[in-house]
């Protein structure tokens, strides 16, 4: 268990939506349209964002829009809460320190 997991969350239910291509920190990955950005990122990555004050990795916590620990940058939008934001084709998400548009 010592090496970093490929992704944190695991999809266990069949999707009935098309696979679309999104970009995470410039890397193209596939995700299902309509699932949450949190799932799309954490299915591939061990973390969603890095805490502004310590740089520590974070991957959300409450998963229901309350703890605000899953804010990511989405190009053209700005900050967005990953657990309540649905994925659409071409979405570009950054897990780093917020960049300005």
């Amino acid at each position: 268990m010592s090496e970093a997991p490929r992704g944190q969350v695991v999809r266990v239910k069949r999707r009935h939506a098309p696979l679309v291509v999104i970009e995470i920190d410039g890397e193209q990955v596939e995700a299902f349209a309509g699932e949450s950005v949190l799932v799309a990122v954490l299915a591939h990555r061990p973390a969603l964002r890095h805490l502004e004050f310590s740089g520590e990795p974070r991957a959300g916590f409450c998963l229901m829009g309350a703890c605000q620990d899953c804010w990511v940058e989405i190009e053209g939008v700005g900050g967005a809460r990953a657990c309540t934001t649905p994925v659409s084709a071409g979405l570009r998400v950054s897990t780093g320190w917020p960049r300005f548009g």
């Binding site: 605000q68 804010w71 700005g78 300005f100 548009g101």
Partner: peptide, 9 residues
């Protein structure tokens, strides 16, 4: 203008 994408907490 560049603050447009940020949130008030």
């Amino acid at each position: 203008p560049r603050l447009a994408g940020t949130s008030v907490i």
